[in-house]
Design a protein around this nucleic acid. Structure first.
Length: 442
RNA sequence: GCCGCGGUAGUAUAGCCUGGCCCAGUAUGCGGGCCUGUCAAGCCCGUGACCCGGGUUCAAAUCCCGGCCGCGGCGCCA
């Protein structure tokens, strides 16, 4: 007669609401098979959970024969009677009357039961199998929820979602670290940031814009916290009093993301990620980089005044803030002009420093932002100061000749937030299909 | 880009320093067998590997050179 998938019920639903004694159809992947002669236990997994199927020779010989030859990760459907069982996980199990195999799985190339048993590189080679592990799968449910929470926050706060081009022409903010692509007969690049375009959004009159999309960096990093392609949550807002307004926004979004993740997945995170943070930060301190230098110096770390913090410095600062303020996050403000891009607004009374900030989460930069220079003449001068040619920024500079409000914005690295929140050891875990200098597939 | 480390069965590792005791050990997987209440089932039997090329040596997984591949640290950045 065959099993109809139309009558399929999700496993959690069955465990929660199924009536004992009734017949149900479930379908999914074979999690484990334990054969004991005349009785075979099959744990079936779908995207909602797991249930134990009991396949007995004296209930259905045909199903029993099929069951004892099942391989892990094969796709099957089972029709059976729900029964109570003290022994079974979830307290209930399905006594199988009929079993269909849709797809028999070969022997697995990686250990999907325990992610620590296979090195990450190999797991990523077999990413689709790696994601059969609920822990790994969960990371992407979390990111989806984070993005959703962020998007909702943006909409609630009057931001307009924009979609800017990722194919860009020659002139970009830095010049280096971009991927070249062939665009018909012209040189072109992959956008390393929507920076200039989101400013355009503000100046065009949207006033507040955000974008969630890919950013490309051609830096040959070999670290556990860099990708050549990542998801950036960018925001830009006009008519601000100062960069504090931007920090407030960043704090608002990040809090919204973390709050949502904890409330939605808290208990599952606790099970899967022993190093995860399960509490929203209370107060996020804001310190100037000069205060950060001092804190590091008094902790015995060498710092160079007027330079960006080293990665060691950032890590240490994270520890110090955690200890002194009890916060996993800290805003470091007023970065030196020499360490910031041309569009950053300088501090008017002290132009060595800028109206900019980084947000550190457990000692790692997860966001960067600041107030942008909106005065045409000053902007031209700053481009020159950075050794760039204003002629190459003509279209950009034009935006500041026809009414540009004071504005600022920031970029937040999605994978970095996820990595630090969950306490992952490698950012590649937080990206579905990570790209790094070596990896281009799958 | 600079620096460091590493490539042994499907997977993860031991062995390498101090060459022979290694036709390579262990765990897990896989194949087979027994078993009607297992919980990553258990027990028994079996299967399967030294990245590629060159060199040194009586002898190379082990030492040397080259290549390929991978991992990490730094700089820089989200």
């Amino acid at each position: 007669m065959g099993i109809s998938l139309r009558s399929r019920i999700y496993i959690v639903e069955l465990l929660d609401k199924g009536e004992v004694g009734k017949e149900y159809t479930v379908a999914g992947w074979v999690d484990t098979v334990r054969a004991h002669g005349g009785i075979v236990f099959v744990v079936l997994r779908d995207r909602t959970g797991k249930i134990q199927l009991v396949v007995k020779k004296n209930v259905s010989k045909e199903a029993w024969k099929t069951a004892k030859n099942l391989t892990p990760e094969s796709v099957i459907a089972a029709r059976g009677t729900l029964v109570e069982s003290k022994a079974a996980l979830g307290g209930r199990e399905l006594v199988v009357n009929e079993l269909t195999v849709y797809s028999k799985a070969d022997a697995l190339p990686i250990d999907i039961k325990d992610h620590t048993k296979t090195i990450l590189a190999k797991r990523l080679d077999w990413r689709f199998l790696d994601l059969r592990n609920p822990r790994n799968f969960l990371i992407f449910l979390i990111e989806a929820e984070m993005v959703r929470a962020a998007r909702e926050w943006f909409y609630e706060h009057g931001f307009v979602e924009i979609f800017t081009s990722k194919i860009v022409g020659a002139a970009t903010e830095g010049g280096a670290e971009v991927f070249s692509i062939v665009y018909f007969d012209k040189p072109a690049f992959l956008a390393q940031s929507p920076q200039l375009y989101k400013q355009m959004g503000v100046i065009a009159g949207f006033e507040r814009v955000f974008e969630i999309g890919p950013a490309f960096r051609a830096e040959p990093h070999h670290t556990t916290r860099h990708l050549t392609e990542y998801t950036s949550l960018d925001l830009e807002m006009g008519f601000i009093d100062g960069f504090e307004d931007v920090m407030d926004a960043v704090e608002g979004v990040v809090r919204a993301m973390i709050r949502r993740v904890i409330s939605t997945f808290g208990s599952r995170i606790k099970e899967c990620f022993p190093d995860a943070i399960l509490e929203e930060p209370k107060e996020i301190p804001r310190i100037t980089i000069r205060e950060a230098y001092k804190l590091l110096e008094s902790a015995g770390i060498d710092v160079e005044w007027g330079e960006d913090l080293s990665s060691e410095g950032e890590r240490k600062l994270g520890e110090i803030i955690e200890r002194e303020y009890g916060s996993p996050m800290v805003f470091v403000t007023e970065y030196p002009w020499r360490a910031r891009p041309f569009y950053t607004m300088k501090k008017s009374d002290d132009p060595e420093w800028t109206l900019s900030f980084d947000l550190l989460f457990r000692g790692l930069e997860i966001a960067t932002g600041g107030q942008r220079e909106h005065r045409y003449e000053v902007l031209v001068k700053q481009i020159e100061e950075k050794g760039l040619n204003p002629k190459n920024f003509e279209w950009y500079l034009n935006m500041f000749r026809f009414g540009a409000p004071p504005h600022g914005g920031a970029g937040i690295g999605l994978e970095r937030v996820a990595m630090q929140l969950l306490g992952l050891g490698n950012i590649r875990e937080a990206r579905l299909l990570p790209r790094d200098p070596e990896r281009l597939t799958p």
